[in-house]
Protein backbone atom coordinates (compact mmCIF):
# COMPACT_ATOMS: atom_id res chain seq x y z
CA UNK A 1 0.00 0.00 0.00
CA UNK A 2 1.37 3.36 -1.03
CA UNK A 3 -0.48 6.64 -0.58
CA UNK A 4 0.74 9.75 -2.39
CA UNK A 5 -0.61 13.09 -1.26
CA UNK A 6 -0.17 16.62 -2.55
CA UNK A 7 -1.51 19.50 -0.48
CA UNK A 8 -1.37 22.97 -1.98
CA UNK A 9 -2.48 26.41 -0.88
CA UNK A 10 -0.90 29.74 -0.10
CA UNK A 11 1.81 30.73 2.34
CA UNK A 12 0.42 31.12 5.85
CA UNK A 13 -2.22 28.41 5.45
CA UNK A 14 -0.08 25.88 7.28
CA UNK A 15 0.47 23.71 4.23
CA UNK A 16 3.95 22.51 5.22
CA UNK A 17 2.85 21.84 8.79
CA UNK A 18 -0.08 19.76 7.52
CA UNK A 19 2.36 17.52 5.72
CA UNK A 20 4.81 17.32 8.60
CA UNK A 21 2.14 16.27 11.09
CA UNK A 22 0.91 13.53 8.77
CA UNK A 23 4.47 12.41 8.06
CA UNK A 24 5.38 12.32 11.76
CA UNK A 25 2.33 10.18 12.54
CA UNK A 26 3.23 7.80 9.71
CA UNK A 27 6.76 7.50 11.11
CA UNK A 28 5.39 6.67 14.57
CA UNK A 29 3.35 3.89 12.95
CA UNK A 30 6.53 2.43 11.51
CA UNK A 31 5.69 3.22 7.92
CA UNK A 32 8.07 4.44 5.25
CA UNK A 33 7.41 8.11 4.63
CA UNK A 34 8.84 11.04 2.69
CA UNK A 35 7.92 14.72 2.87
CA UNK A 36 9.09 17.03 0.11
CA UNK A 37 8.46 20.77 0.21
CA UNK A 38 8.34 23.28 -2.58
CA UNK A 39 11.41 25.35 -1.82
CA UNK A 40 13.10 28.55 -2.78
CA UNK A 41 11.54 31.78 -3.98
CA UNK A 42 8.35 29.98 -4.86
CA UNK A 43 7.45 29.56 -1.19
CA UNK A 44 6.65 33.26 -1.09
CA UNK A 45 4.82 33.25 -4.42
CA UNK A 46 1.40 32.12 -5.58
CA UNK A 47 1.24 28.65 -4.11
CA UNK A 48 2.88 26.67 -1.36
CA UNK A 49 2.74 22.91 -1.54
CA UNK A 50 4.28 19.78 -0.19
CA UNK A 51 4.29 16.17 -1.28
CA UNK A 52 3.93 13.28 1.15
CA UNK A 53 4.42 9.61 0.31
CA UNK A 54 3.43 7.00 2.90
CA UNK A 55 4.05 3.33 2.22
CA UNK A 56 4.53 -0.13 3.66
CA UNK A 57 7.61 -0.54 1.49
CA UNK A 58 10.71 1.46 0.61
CA UNK A 59 9.81 4.66 -1.23
CA UNK A 60 11.34 5.51 -4.59
CA UNK A 61 10.65 9.07 -5.60
CA UNK A 62 9.51 11.55 -2.99
CA UNK A 63 8.44 13.66 -5.96
CA UNK A 64 4.88 12.94 -7.09
CA UNK A 65 3.91 12.91 -10.75
CA UNK A 66 0.49 11.30 -10.27
CA UNK A 67 -1.09 11.59 -6.88
CA UNK A 68 -3.64 9.48 -5.04
CA UNK A 69 -4.89 12.44 -3.03
CA UNK A 70 -4.94 16.14 -3.85
CA UNK A 71 -5.94 18.71 -1.26
CA UNK A 72 -6.55 22.19 -2.62
CA UNK A 73 -6.65 25.08 -0.18
CA UNK A 74 -6.68 28.06 -2.57
CA UNK A 75 -7.71 28.91 -6.13
CA UNK A 76 -4.36 29.03 -7.99
CA UNK A 77 -3.44 25.60 -6.63
CA UNK A 78 -6.38 23.97 -8.37
CA UNK A 79 -5.26 25.05 -11.83
CA UNK A 80 -1.69 24.13 -11.07
CA UNK A 81 -2.21 20.65 -9.66
CA UNK A 82 -5.53 19.22 -10.89
CA UNK A 83 -3.88 17.37 -13.79
CA UNK A 84 -1.67 15.51 -11.29
CA UNK A 85 -4.59 13.61 -9.76
CA UNK A 86 -5.01 9.96 -10.73
CA UNK A 87 -8.29 9.09 -12.47
CA UNK A 88 -9.81 7.55 -9.36
CA UNK A 89 -7.96 9.84 -6.94
CA UNK A 90 -9.37 11.71 -3.97
CA UNK A 91 -9.80 15.48 -4.45
CA UNK A 92 -10.59 17.61 -1.41
CA UNK A 93 -11.28 21.29 -1.96
CA UNK A 94 -11.52 24.24 0.40
CA UNK A 95 -14.82 25.58 -0.94
CA UNK A 96 -14.61 28.74 1.17
CA UNK A 97 -12.17 30.27 -1.28
CA UNK A 98 -12.06 27.88 -4.26
CA UNK A 99 -14.82 28.21 -6.84
CA UNK A 100 -16.53 25.18 -8.37
CA UNK A 101 -15.25 23.92 -11.69
CA UNK A 102 -13.27 20.93 -10.57
CA UNK A 103 -14.31 17.34 -11.14
CA UNK A 104 -17.81 16.53 -9.93
CA UNK A 105 -16.40 13.84 -7.64
CA UNK A 106 -14.48 16.40 -5.62
CA UNK A 107 -15.21 16.59 -1.90
CA UNK A 108 -15.90 20.23 -1.12
CA UNK A 109 -15.85 21.65 2.40
CA UNK A 110 -15.65 25.27 3.61
CA UNK A 111 -12.48 24.75 5.69
CA UNK A 112 -11.72 28.45 6.06
CA UNK A 113 -15.28 29.35 7.14
CA UNK A 114 -15.31 26.50 9.64
CA UNK A 115 -11.96 27.67 11.06
CA UNK A 116 -13.28 31.22 11.43
CA UNK A 117 -16.33 29.86 13.27
CA UNK A 118 -14.03 27.90 15.55
CA UNK A 119 -12.25 31.15 16.35
CA UNK A 120 -8.97 31.03 14.37
CA UNK A 121 -8.69 31.14 10.58
CA UNK A 122 -5.29 29.47 10.84
CA UNK A 123 -6.72 26.10 11.85
CA UNK A 124 -8.38 25.56 8.44
CA UNK A 125 -5.49 23.17 7.70
CA UNK A 126 -6.41 20.96 10.67
CA UNK A 127 -10.06 20.86 9.60
CA UNK A 128 -8.79 19.71 6.21
CA UNK A 129 -6.56 17.09 7.87
CA UNK A 130 -9.54 15.71 9.81
CA UNK A 131 -11.66 15.44 6.69
CA UNK A 132 -8.81 13.72 4.83
CA UNK A 133 -8.25 11.17 7.61
CA UNK A 134 -11.96 10.38 7.69
CA UNK A 135 -11.72 9.39 4.03
CA UNK A 136 -8.35 7.68 3.85
CA UNK A 137 -7.45 6.46 7.35
CA UNK A 138 -3.76 6.56 6.32
CA UNK A 139 -2.74 6.93 9.95
CA UNK A 140 -4.68 6.77 13.22
CA UNK A 141 -6.23 9.85 14.77
CA UNK A 142 -4.60 8.89 18.04
CA UNK A 143 -1.15 9.27 16.54
CA UNK A 144 -2.06 12.55 14.84
CA UNK A 145 -3.14 13.89 18.22
CA UNK A 146 0.09 12.65 19.74
CA UNK A 147 2.12 14.52 17.14
CA UNK A 148 0.05 17.67 17.64
CA UNK A 149 0.76 17.53 21.35
CA UNK A 150 4.46 17.04 20.71
CA UNK A 151 4.67 19.95 18.26
CA UNK A 152 2.49 22.45 20.15
CA UNK A 153 4.38 25.34 21.70
CA UNK A 154 5.02 24.76 25.39
CA UNK A 155 2.54 26.39 27.74
CA UNK A 156 0.06 27.14 24.97
CA UNK A 157 -2.74 24.69 25.67
CA UNK A 158 -5.16 27.06 23.96
CA UNK A 159 -3.37 26.54 20.61
CA UNK A 160 -3.36 22.79 21.05
CA UNK A 161 -7.06 22.75 22.01
CA UNK A 162 -8.31 24.75 19.04
CA UNK A 163 -6.24 22.61 16.69
CA UNK A 164 -7.66 19.43 18.21
CA UNK A 165 -11.16 20.85 17.90
CA UNK A 166 -10.50 21.73 14.26
CA UNK A 167 -9.27 18.19 13.60
CA UNK A 168 -12.39 16.68 15.23
CA UNK A 169 -14.67 19.00 13.29
CA UNK A 170 -12.95 17.93 10.09
CA UNK A 171 -13.35 14.24 10.87
CA UNK A 172 -17.09 14.68 11.37
CA UNK A 173 -17.77 16.63 8.15
CA UNK A 174 -20.33 15.22 5.75
CA UNK A 175 -20.05 15.85 2.04
CA UNK A 176 -21.00 19.45 1.36
Amino acid sequence: MTERIIIAGSGGQGIMLWGKILAQAAMIEGKFVTWLPAYGAEVRGGTAHCMIVISDEEIGSPYIDKTDTLIIMNQPSLARFKSRLKDNGLLIINSSIVEAGAKAKAKRYPFTDIAVELGNVRVANMVALGSYLAKRKTVSLKNILGVMKMMAPAGRDDILKINQKALDTGVKLRNG
Partner: peptide
Amino acid sequence: DGMLGQMMEP
Protein backbone atom coordinates in the same frame (compact mmCIF):
# COMPACT_ATOMS: atom_id res chain seq x y z
CA ASP B 1 20.96 17.02 -4.76
CA GLY B 2 18.18 19.47 -3.97
CA MET B 3 15.58 16.76 -3.62
CA LEU B 4 17.65 14.79 -1.13
CA GLY B 5 18.58 17.93 0.79
CA GLN B 6 15.03 19.18 1.07
CA MET B 7 13.08 15.97 1.66
CA MET B 8 12.32 14.68 5.12
CA GLU B 9 12.47 11.02 6.08
CA PRO B 10 12.65 9.16 9.37
